[in-house]
Amino acid sequence: MTIGSCPFQAGIHAVDELHEDLRTRGAGVHEAELPDGSPVWVITGYDAVTRLLADPKVSAAKADSTTGFRGNKLPPALDANLLNLDGDAHRRIRRLATEAFGPRNHPAQERVVIDAVTELVDALPDDGEIDLMNGLCEPLPPRVTGELLGLPREQLGDFRAASAPLLRVNTGGDETRTSMGIMLRLVSDVIADKRREPGDDLLSAWIAARDGEDRLSENELVGLAFITIVGGFENTISLTAYVLDELIREHQAHAREILDNPAEFEALIRRLIRAAAPMNYAIRRFPLTDIEINGVVIPRGHTVLASLRSAHLDPAGAGRPDVVFGHGRHYCLGAKLAELQTRHAVRAVLHKYPHLSTVAPREDYQLRPSWQTYALAELRMTTV
């Protein structure tokens, strides 16, 4: 079934309705066009999406496209990142990255999160209207990811500005190319600085792996830093903002009752994270052979997008692992870190303010102009 560019409307609140319509229409497998005119298949439903994302016969590497997929035209050094790799290279780099975000590092990372949240929430106004987007949600992930990577704090604003266009509707345009050029310079400069003066941070450890054990090529080193920055910044901003908004609107009284019960509060935040589901689609895939999904044959090398939102909405997913952070071998490595930031941000806001109210219906909030995510562009609350 051909549906044109409909699935890629940007900055709309009715994303659940759109993806549910795609899931329940026909076989739930649709031909469409990306905003740049590229042909694409859209796959919907929990079972189809999770099978696709776990299928070893489906690749994330752009080199496996047979239709000339363009996507973001990144510089080669940024293009060599985990989202664009599969096979042996992906496994080798992911093992190294997994060490950095593994359970043994969670306590140290949680301390970084708590310190950043405390500083930001302390700086918020004591009463009146509170701008939680600019005061907390936007600066928190760059602060946390920046400290873990070892990025200079005075340059975090530059890194955030360079990363933001990647998820906007005009992906692949002049703005994105300019921003990615800036990002390449920023990452290359900080790597050079870390080579001269290593620190106790992830970049220094990855440089040591590159220069000492030769576990990374130079482009892979830059690409790993790049994707950690982009993933650590943008998606966590969207997640934290939505969870805060949803909790204050619908669960504030209950959240305050269990605020001092860590297990119950953590469970509530996890449920809200599942409800938030900011990513509409997983990163595109390319079948390595013709594949059949729900009776529809998708040819080798065609671009396929899996609708994570439709999987989230599908009753077939009830009681099964959620897909908020993806599924399969490309599951988000920073999922635990994103959860930590969201949980501690919400807890600190509730502790500071005995009562909060939203200032407008969510449908009145501006959204970031992206078809890939459902992301609030503003979050204002009042103590009145």
Results as ranks from 00 to 15, higher is better:
L184W: 03
L356A: 07
D322Q: 04
Q155V: 12
R196D: 14
R320G: 00
A335E: 02
R285L: 00
F159G: 07
G232A: 03
R271H: 05
V346Q: 01
K336D: 12
S204E: 05
N294H: 10
A345D: 06
G146C: 14
D86H: 15
A108M: 12
T98E: 14
Y281C: 00
T240P: 05
H327G: 02
L333I: 11
T289H: 07
L82T: 12
A80M: 09
H312P: 01
P315H: 14
G232M: 07
N235D: 00
P354C: 04
L53I: 11
E33S: 11
A311G: 12
H302W: 13
L136C: 13
A316D: 12
D122N: 15
T67N: 03
A10M: 06
G157R: 13
W206C: 00
A108S: 10
L272I: 04
V359I: 14
H254P: 00
R168V: 03
R94T: 15
V323Q: 01
L74S: 12
A253Q: 04
R143A: 15
E175Q: 09
G71F: 00
K73F: 00
E378F: 04
A306E: 08
H30G: 06
V384R: 11
E129Y: 12
R95E: 14
I227R: 01
P315D: 14
G232W: 04
N105I: 11
D158Y: 08
G4M: 10
I283S: 14
W371V: 04
G150K: 12
E266L: 03
R153F: 10
D193E: 14
P165E: 02
D36Y: 01
E129D: 15
A208H: 05
R23N: 03
L74P: 06
L202C: 07
G317Q: 08
I298P: 01
T240Y: 07
A100D: 11
K336A: 15
E99C: 02
G87A: 10
P75E: 14
L96S: 10
G146S: 13
Q9K: 14
T303M: 08
G87W: 11
F233R: 07
R23W: 05
E250K: 01
G87F: 11
G68M: 06
I114R: 15
G199V: 02
D314Y: 06
V40F: 02
Y374E: 09
L83N: 13
R380C: 04
L22Y: 02
L74D: 06
I114N: 12
N170R: 12
G150F: 11
I293F: 09
I291N: 03
G146M: 13
R309K: 15
Y374N: 10
I227F: 00
D86L: 13
R153D: 12
E154G: 13
D211R: 09
A277E: 09
R362H: 11
L22F: 04
I237N: 00
K57Q: 08
L53H: 10
Q9Y: 06
T98H: 13
R320N: 02
L376S: 03
P35W: 14
V349H: 06
E175A: 13
V187C: 01
D214V: 00
F8W: 02
R320H: 07
I130H: 07
T303L: 09
